[in-house]
Amino acid sequence: MKFFLKCNEAAQVCDKTQYKEASFLDKVMLKVHLLMCKLCRDYTKRNVALTKKIESANIKTLSESEKQQIKNRLQQ
């Protein structure tokens, strides 16, 4: 079993972690990699900050019925 990640693999695991898709082993391997790699630590910090900003933006989207109404108007 491979325990050490390459930087591109660490970035993928970081992204998976942000979306809560990473396994426990993935998270452990990422933490080990982050202990040794400053570039990936910086990437992770930026990724976390971006996710927090997006979550706090309170973005509202159209409901499915509103989208359908717009489609119908455009087709007419």
Rank of each mutant, 00 (worst) to 15 (best):
Q68S: 07
Q68D: 10
L39D: 15
T51S: 13
L62W: 11
T61H: 11
T44W: 14
C37Y: 03
A22K: 03
N47F: 07
T44L: 11
N47I: 04
R46V: 04
K6Y: 10
T17M: 03
F4Y: 12
K38Y: 15
N8K: 07
N47S: 15
A49L: 04
F4A: 11
S23C: 08
D26L: 01
E21N: 13
K20S: 06
K67H: 09
L5I: 09
K27P: 00
N58L: 12
L50K: 07
T51P: 03
E21H: 06
K38S: 15
C14W: 01
A22W: 08
C14K: 00
V32G: 01
F24G: 01
Y19G: 07
L35H: 05
M36C: 13
R46W: 07
S63M: 05
K2F: 09
V32E: 04
A49P: 02
K53C: 09
M36T: 06
K45I: 09
M36R: 14
E55P: 08
L25D: 13
K20Q: 12
L39G: 15
I54G: 09
K60M: 11
Q18W: 06
N58M: 11
K31W: 02
C40W: 12
A10R: 02
E66G: 03
E64H: 08
H33M: 01
L30D: 00
L62T: 13
N72V: 10
F3L: 14
S65Y: 03
S63F: 10
A49S: 04
L62G: 05
Q69D: 13
S65K: 05
Q75E: 13
T51V: 11
K67N: 12
N47M: 04
A10I: 03
A57M: 12
L50E: 07
L35K: 10
E21K: 15
H33P: 07
K52W: 09
L74K: 09
V32R: 04
L25K: 00
K53R: 15
S65W: 01
K52T: 12
D42F: 06
I54F: 13
M1V: 10
K52P: 03
F24A: 06
Y43A: 01
L30I: 02
K6G: 10
K71E: 04
Y43P: 01
V28D: 00
C40G: 08
E66C: 02
E64Y: 07
L5V: 06
L35N: 02
